[in-house]
Design a protein around this nucleic acid. Structure first.
Lengths: 242, 242
DNA sequence: GAGTGGTCTAGACCACCTG
DNA sequence: AGGTGGTCTAGACCACTCA
């Protein structure tokens, strides 16, 4: 087990993964402590620590103080996805992006949105509905609610030329986000807007964004099912990507 | 800017995030080098490095040797999702899990699958179709292809009581995986199996799994749209989660 | 109480890339 | 050519938690 030459945390990572893969250390096994591994690999404990820390983050192993490190029983099926910014997504496909506002309304949050966005009674919100086109074909319908308590400057935005998405991205960077992906049939109304048949399958993304307790915005995005795919970065529980 | 007391990488992380949020350092700005920050915070460069490394991993900043570190222009919309293991997912909901095999066939890979799985000509594959029930309601239809060249021991599995998913998870842990999420309308055949109406929206997950160049398995999972939602872990580009 | 992981330090060398 | 990030070391203290 003794090693020579350069021992990097990468080497250790892949080596440990190899052992897990080859069932040298089957799921549930305790693996040696950092100090032991450091001696075995002939490197500093810090280096071992980084390797193990990253493996733990990837879900391959589980670590607890005093209890030690064990190989995870349920292999990780974690994937990192990148939710594209609509304009960039379309332009990257070589298509022309166009934005169209459908309607914009400031109102007292209806009960349903109060619940979803955790708003106080009588909270004012901005409701914007709009379409995103790729080469003049409807690509995404956006149903957006903005909490005017958190983003009062949205009042000054007409959203006639710039979509709320882009505006928020530039104005309110860095926020917590939650995404829910689902599928639904197109209502007649949605079908008309998206220029598809009623009942056609839609890929739906719901996103809530908040910053320190307060919801900033909630949005529901509808894509024609045949035109949209969300691809997870080829993740790994192996090798370099971890 | 000088600090006193305990300075951990967490402190530095949140502090830097704060500055970015407050537009103290707007998108695109160069931020000071590690050495400078270490002096400013009164800590070791190693500590600063870890803070910055994790921020970079989260996509908040971009780092390049010699060029330095700058605040990312496009705020990250990366989310980590956990693809559930079907049995655990159902049982976690308090429902009873049941598995049913529809058919199982060993054959020479048809051209389409050869392409998808990057198989050589005349490669043998195992094709399994099965259903997963939650409380006797169809929850997921699974259309699975297994490369018998990579997983020859699948020949011995009838998959009558244990689904291919669970078997693979236990037998071939740790592999690269790619996921594609989309929406589609139910074909009459799928509708019958899933006991829904033809044309109902389906949430579709396609997964390819491979290990060192060779595809192990490719699977297409269909969920009734109204019953399934994929929730991303509330990720953040802010605060603790990073 | 003691062993494990979690973190920090001060110093060092190197690879890369830009000016 | 030189500055920046990337990494490694050897040592240290602490926090948590299990026996």
């Amino acid at each position: 087990m003794k090693r020579r030459g350069i021992v990097s945390f990468q080497t250790i990572k892949t080596d440990i993964l190899q052992r897990i893969k080859l069932r040298d250390w089957p799921p549930g096994t305790m693996i040696p402590g950092e100090e032991t591994l450091a001696r075995d690999y002939g490197c500093s404990r810090n280096t071992v620590n980084r390797a193990l820390r990253e493996l733990a983050q990837a879900g391959v192993i589980e670590r607890r103080r005093r209890a030690g490190t064990r190989v995870a029983v349920t292999p990780p099926l974690a994937a990192q996805i990148h939710i594209p910014v609509i304009r960039e997504e379309i332009e990257q496909k070589g298509a022309t992006y166009r934005y169209a506002l459908l309607d914009r309304e400031e109102l007292i949050a209806p009960a349903m949105m109060r619940g979803k966005m955790a708003l106080p009674e009588n909270a004012e919100v901005l409701h914007v509905r709009c379409l995103h086109y790729a080469d003049e074909t409807p690509y995404q319908f956006e149903d957006r609610w903005i909490n005017l308590g958190e983003a009062p400057d949205a009042r000054d935005q007409t959203f006639e030329t710039v979509g709320p998405n882009e505006w928020l991205v530039e104005t309110k960077p860095l926020a917590y986000a939650e995404h829910i992906f689902s599928a639904a049939n197109a209502t007649p109304q949605l079908a008309a807007w998206l220029e598809i048949e009623p009942n056609d399958a839609l890929f739906v993304v719901e996103r809530r964004t908040w910053s320190e307790e307060n919801t900033i915005t909630a949005v529901k995005l509808f894509h024609p099912g045949f035109a949209f795919r969300l691809v997870s970065r080829a993740i790994s529980n192996s090798g370099e990507d971890l």
